[in-house]
């Protein structure tokens, strides 16, 4: 079809199909999704909110208690410790994942032989399922035979095998780094894609004018990928906030609460102590946190969409 014919067709469409196209069709198309998510996401959120206002001793009917669960939560030092652990874990994961993601993206963005292979390798941790990831790291961190002991003992101040996941500080560090190992390829690949959109002429012109590579990075590259980095920061915060499986299987929240984030706390409260109504209240607190991050994400994305035109 020629361009002209296409234009004609378009003109005809504006006149004819506007009336012909059924206006209800898009609603019909999204209705199944809305109904589905309504049943499986929105209704549970409502049900969680409702049951957080009740008290339900195991095997007995529930009883309205108003805000008692929330009063208990806000007055509980354990809750605030959990919140602190959650935020610290999130912050650490964000820093490591973005730092390493950016670093590896810059390294892989250069021309070198085997670049396609190196990039392909990056999908490996990303595609690797959570449970086998836990398996191999539990093995690597085994206090007796783990290979990490070999590496750790090459450090001058380490003269015996560390206890890894049994030591609060090392457990925190390990959980963050394992989360980051599995997570960073995603950030790296997204940043790589963003680096590809950085105008090369600008960087080259700056180089000709005598700017050093570091100067070019801060003056040209970084501003160009800043919107992507901002978006990724929010994504990293929500992904780390969501993280359950890795922490649960690595430490279960221990040792002595060192890795007890809010999602772990909810799970333990519900399925170890069978305190469903208090777990529901914790879920509402977590939900408010997730919603805040989600709204920031949506706001940033819409602003960037507007700026992009």
């Amino acid at each position: 079809m020629t361009t002209q014919a296409m234009d004609l067709a378009r003109g005809a469409r504006l006149g004819a199909t506007k009336r012909r196209r059924p206006a209800f069709l898009p609603y019909l198309l999204v209705l199944p999704i809305l109904a589905y998510e309504g049943v499986f996401l929105l209704y549970p959120i409502y049900e969680g909110l409702r049951s957080s206002l009740y008290r339900q001793p195991l095997g007995r009917p529930e009883r309205w208690v108003g805000l008692a669960n929330y009063r208990r939560m806000l007055g509980d030092d354990g809750f605030w410790a959990t919140m602190g652990t959650t935020l610290a874990y999130m912050a650490a994961v964000i820093v490591v994942v973005l730092g390493f993601g950016l670093g590896s993206a810059l390294v892989l963005n250069r021309q070198f032989r085997g670049r396609a292979f190196a990039r392909g390798l990056m999908t490996l941790p990303w595609a690797f399922p959570d449970v086998p990831t836990v398996l191999v790291f539990l093995w690597m961190l085994n206090p007796n035979f783990g290979v990490m002991n070999v590496f750790a003992r090459t450090l001058p101040w380490v003269d015996s095998s560390p206890t890894w996941l049994l030591d609060p500080t090392l457990a925190k560090l390990s959980v963050v780094l394992i989360t980051a190992w599995k997570g960073f390829p995603f950030y790296s690949l997204v940043i790589l894609a963003a680096l590809q959109t950085v105008p090369q002429e600008l960087a080259e012109a700056a180089r000709v004018d005598g700017a050093s590579k570091v100067q070019v990075f801060f003056a040209v590259t970084l501003p160009a990928i800043a919107p992507t980095l901002l978006l990724l920061t929010v994504l990293a915060s929500i992904f780390s906030f969501k993280q359950f499986t890795l922490i649960w299987l690595l430490t279960g929240g221990g040792p002595s609460g060192a890795t007890n984030t809010i999602v772990i706390e909810i799970y333990n409260t519900a399925f170890r102590f069978y305190d469903f109504s208090y777990a529901a209240a914790l879920g509402v607190a977590g939900f408010l946190m997730a919603l805040t991050i989600a709204l920031v994400f949506v706001a940033i994305q819409r602003r960037q969409e507007l700026e992009a035109g």
Binding site: Y43, P44, I266, G283, I293, A294, L295, V298
Partner: peptide, 26 residues
């Protein structure tokens, strides 16, 4: 349309563990 798009973005961010309790009950 925009509301639907935002709805999708927001639900994508919902942590599974937050609704595990009500989902279990349901």
């Amino acid at each position: 349309r925009a509301v639907f798009a935002v709805f999708l973005l927001a639900t994508q961010m919902l942590p599974e563990a937050l609704i595990i309790v009500p989902i279990f009950k349901i």
